[in-house]
């Protein structure tokens, strides 16, 4: 076995000129991906990036690995084929809110259900960028866009709810202006065996600038987001003086409280547990958003389940033990046959 070379971020940058708009949130995601993939301990030839269509989906061209830029919404189909054929590969999917959740919605839920070991990074800018500014399935209700001049009339999807509702074994949310956080999350996504969905709140400077400002703006983000970490109480706020408590017993309600008020101490706060077998807590977290709750950033869920490709190869091994045919001729001659002399 050859030793894996020590890589740096540069080893994973391709020679292609990057054609995203200046100031696009995608740059920091690309940067974090290149940095992380250099550290995962896989040889460069054993890494494969797959994408569909959209701004995000140009990413494979910028990675000096194997890569496929495919058709709109179907990246997960291609990625599944790659992974099943060669499970040794570290397979990554770069996708957007339109690509993954609109045209690719069906593939998204089914890939999650199968739990293949794929790392899916959703660049969520709540808009169609490459087609120049139409609303997406994650656009906020009422958003005025080129295809909704009087505002949209449809509720957005929450990628988190959709993923956890589909049985995702790993879901995390991060944000494009915190490159260190993206890197940490991506590393954890890689380490997770099974499907990992990473939603990155990404800013489209041209068509939906500031869409995530509530959670990204330096002056307010501490008040409006909560960093969730396994085993730690949910504390947030610029002064780390706010927290989440669970009340209501059988029908739990998450309430924002102030530490020190009404006798509340850190011990009363909800403690995050990403390993919970039940998706209840993760589901509850998917409902947190401004203005009622802080938006959770971090890993919602990280649990172990059997993987599709693992089961495929196990079946091959088991059936090979039971059946003796190894060639097509063996198969054809083993059934009902007759000989003409």
């Amino acid at each position: 076995m050859n030793q894996v070379p020590t890589y740096t971020k540069k080893d994973f940058a391709s020679s292609q000129e990057i054609r995203w708009c200046p100031g696009c949130g995608n740059y920091s995601i690309l940067n974090a991906i290149q940095t992380t993939v250099a550290k995962i301990g896989k040889r460069r030839e054993d890494v494969c990036f797959v994408s569909g269509i959209g701004c995000s989906s140009r990413l494979p061209y910028y990675m000096n690995t194997y890569g496929m830029h495919t058709i709109h919404g179907r990246a997960l189909g291609f990625a599944s084929g790659v992974k099943i054929q060669n499970p040794n590969l570290s397979v990554w999917v770069a996708t957007g809110d339109g690509d993954a959740l609109s045209i690719g919605g069906n593939h998204f839920i089914h890939a999650i259900r199968r739990n293949l070991d794929l790392n899916i990074v959703i660049f969520n800018n709540e808009i169609y960028g490459l087609t120049k500014g139409q609303y997406s399935p994650t656009s906020k209700y009422g958003l005025v866009t080129k295809s909704s001049p009087y505002g949209t009339a449809e509720e957005p999807f929450s990628p988190a709810s959709l993923a956890i509702g589909s049985g995702a074994t790993f879901f995390a949310r991060t944000i494009d202006n915190d490159i260190k956080h993206i890197q940490d999350i991506l590393m954890r996504a890689y380490e997770h065996k099974g499907i990992s969905i990473v939603e990155v709140l990404q800013n489209c400077v041209i068509f939906n600038d500031g869409a995530h400002d509530t959670y990204a703006d330096r002056t307010i983000k501490e008040e409006n987001t909560v960093r969730i970490e396994h085993g730690k109480p949910m504390i947030f706020g610029a002064n780390k003086d706010k927290g989440i408590v669970l009340t209501g017993g059988a029908t739990p309600v998450a309430k924002v409280v102030k530490i020190g008020e009404n006798g509340i101490t850190e011990k009363d706060l909800l403690v995050h547990d990403e390993k919970q077998e039940s998706p209840l807590l993760a589901n509850l977290l998917t409902t947190f958003k401004h203005p009622t709750h802080p938006l959770p950033l971090g890993i919602f869920r990280d649990v172990d389940r059997p993987r599709y490709e693992e089961a495929v190869y196990k079946q091959i091994e088991d059936v090979q033990k039971k059946k003796t045919e190894r060639t097509v001729r063996d198969v054809l001659t083993s059934g009902d046959t007759w000989v003409i002399n």
Binding site: C48, G77, F78, V82, N86, N106
Partner: peptide, 21 residues
Amino acid sequence: KTFQAEDEICAVCSAIGASFA
């Protein structure tokens, strides 16, 4: 290896992915 996909489109896409691999 047979992969019963969720639809016709994913079926052919998975095959193209496997071919690439």
